[in-house]
Design a protein around this nucleic acid. Structure first.
Length: 272
DNA sequence: AGACGTACCTGACCGC
DNA sequence: TGCGGTCAGGTACGTC
């Protein structure tokens, strides 16, 4: 599922259901997702109390009372749900039972996700955290910062805003959506984006992500039912997956191209 | 250092 | 119905 808004929504959805609960049982059905699941995984979780759920980039961090955290990344197809009466399903790789009988279920068809345990003293050294760029919804990202970043990158603007070592959380869908909102052509060189355009893009990224989080929030009630239905909550995208559909602003057909191996959607008239 | 292609894995879909 | 090819919302890594 995941770009920043979806991960944020999962965190907000599961937090009230699992914070304060203790872990009674842990079942690991899979040795390895993107990286091996540590041997000590189950023993570190078992018996611990869940203190807090938070998001770091696209990672879900579930803090325990022992100083350890359960760290999960959903990859392309991962789902993290809370279930009351559990029906085992294909690709349920990790099932964590809580003291009230609820289960935290991590299902990931394609196994591009990740699940591990990290002690608070290991966070700074975790190799996947070391290279993370700035959070787009924090004060670290502002108009000044964004322009500084774009100025020195000689590759297309879309891949720059999707690069998690630069800015975290913007994936393939919201990259196309943000560029459309900002009126910027996805094939433009980042270094050739003007200050004015960069400022529009900053606004577009923040607004796009925030709106998607709000859309997710409005479906949290359904999510809490944990019927496994998740994915992108904001199903009506302005350009993503809208090839040949009329542009919402000018009616010209939305185009689809491929950039760096990924699909990009845009309006050739509205995006310069 | 930075840009680019490739690999990881499963399943859905499309044309033959 | 089956087979091969292509595609999918992520990201680390090797190579140039």
């Amino acid at each position: 599922m995941p770009e920043l808004p979806e991960v944020e929504t999962v965190c907000r959805g599961i937090a009230p259901q699992i914070e304060g609960r203790s872990i009674s049982r842990v079942k690991v059905n899979c040795k390895k997702l993107r990286i091996p699941i540590p041997k000590k995984f189950a023993s570190i979780l078992k018996g611990r109390k869940i203190i807090r759920v938070k998001r770091k980039a696209k990672y879900i961090v579930i803090e325990l009372d022992s100083g350890y955290s359960l760290v999960i990344h959903l990859g392309m197809s991962g789902r993290l749900t809370i279930q009351q009466d559990y029906q085992p399903a294909k690709h349920d790789h990790i099932v964590i039972e809580l003291d009230n009988g609820s289960l935290i279920v991590f299902n990931d068809t394609r196994k591009f996700g990740l699940a591990t345990v990290l002690h608070e003293t290991e966070f700074d050294d975790f190799k996947f955290f070391k290279k993370l760029g700035i959070e787009p919804l924090s004060k670290e990202l502002n108009t000044v910062q964004l322009f500084k970043i774009l100025e020195k990158r000689k590759k297309n603007i879309k891949s720059v805003i999707m690069d998690s070592s630069i800015i975290v959380g913007v994936g393939n869908i919201y990259a196309s959506e943000s560029l459309f909102s900002a009126g910027i052509h996805p094939e433009r060189l980042a270094s050739e984006i003007s200050k004015k355009e960069s400022d529009r893009l900053f606004k577009a990224i923040v607004e796009t992500l925030k709106r998607a989080i709000e859309a997710g929030g409005s479906t949290l009630k359904d999510y809490a039912k944990a019927n496994g239905e998740s994915g992108y909550f904001q199903h009506q995208f302005l350009v993503y997956d809208q090839q040949d559909q009329p542009c919402s602003k000018c009616k010209r057909a939305i185009q689809k191209i491929k950039q760096n191996g990924r699909a990009t959607y845009f309006c050739g008239k509205c995006q310069k």
